[in-house]
Design a protein around this nucleic acid. Structure first.
Length: 219
DNA sequence: AAAACGGGGGC
DNA sequence: GCCCCAGTTTT
C-alpha cells in the first residue's frame, strides 16, 4: 500500500465496520467509558484472551468496584470468580490488587498518564500503556496490538518484525489525525475479516490497496 | 487434541 | 530474539 492510499483505505474500513450488525469496535476502550483505570484493568484482562470474553468479564468486575481503593477491598476470590473465563485468572486477579496498591501508594489513587510510568506497573506493557494514554487521556499515541501489527504489514504499509517496530514505523509514517483511531479500526477488521489465517479477501473492499504480504490462503 | 486468544516478563 | 507463562474457548 502506498502512502497516498492510506486515507482512502481507512475511510473505507471505517464505513465497512459501521455497517456490521454486531460491531466489536474498540470494546475494551468503549465499554470502559474512557476511564483510564478501567481501560488499564480491561487491558490486563485481555491478555491472551478473546475480546468478547474480556468484555463480559470486565463488566462483572466493575460491577463490584471500579476504583483502586474499592477494588483493593474486594477479596481475591471474588475477583477471580468475576473474571474467571478470561484465563490466567489467578495471576490476573493478583496483578489487579498489585496495581491498585501501587496506584494508591505512588500516585494517590490515580492512573499516571505517561508511557514510562505506566509500563512499570505489573502486567502493563507498551500496548496497554498506549491505550490508556490515547483513549483514557486523549493524548497522541499509537497502540499496536497483534491485529494492528499484522494488518499494517499485510497491507505492505510498513515492513516490520515486531509490534514495537511497527509502533515506531507508524509514528513516522501515519498521519497524526489517525493515530488514536487506527487501533479502533484495525482491531475489529482483524477480528472479523482480515484474520491471521485465510482472511475473507473476497469481502474486503480495499483489496486493491493491499499487498497481501504473508497471505497464503484466503476466502 | 490442538490451536487461538487485542501481551508481558524473564533470560 | 526466544521461550515461557497457565487457563478458557473454539475448531
Amino acid at each position: 500500500m502506498r502512502q497516498d492510499q492510506i486515507h482512502a483505505a481507512l475511510r473505507i474500513v471505517k464505513r465497512e465496520i459501521r455497517q456490521w450488525q454486531e460491531p466489536v469496535v474498540g470494546v475494551v476502550a468503549r465499554e470502559s467509558a474512557r476511564d483510564p483505570f478501567r481501560i488499564l484493568i480491561s487491558c490486563l484482562l485481555s491478555l491472551r484472551t478473546k475480546d468478547k470474553t474480556t468484555s463480559e468479564a470486565s463488566a462483572r468486575l466493575f460491577a463490584l468496584a471500579h476504583t483502586p481503593e474499592t477494588l483493593l477491598k474486594v477479596p481475591l476470590k471474588r475477583i477471580e470468580k468475576a473474571i474467571y473465563p478470561v484465563g490466567f485468572y489467578r495471576t490476573k486477579a493478583k496483578a489487579i490488587h498489585q496495581i491498585c496498591r501501587r496506584l494508591i501508594d505512588q500516585y494517590g489513587g490515580t492512573v499516571p498518564d505517561s508511557i514510562e510510568e505506566l509500563v512499570t506497573l505489573p502486567g502493563v506493557g507498551r500496548k496497554t500503556a498506549n491505550l490508556v494514554v490515547t483513549v483514557g487521556y486523549g493524548k497522541p499515541g499509537i497502540c499496536v496490538d497483534i491485529h494492528v501489527h499484522r494488518i499494517s504489514n499485510r497491507w505492505g504499509y510498513v515492513k516490520t518484525a515486531t509490534p514495537e517496530q511497527t509502533e515506531q514505523a507508524l509514528r513516522s509514517k501515519l498521519p497524526k489525525r489517525y493515530w488514536i483511531t487506527f487501533n479502533d479500526l484495525l482491531v475489529p477488521y482483524g477480528q472479523n475479516l482480515c484474520q491471521p489465517v485465510s482472511p475473507f479477501c473476497s469481502r474486503c473492499k480495499i483489496i486493491e490497496y493491499c499487498d497481501r504480504v504473508g497471505v497464503t490462503t484466503s476466502r
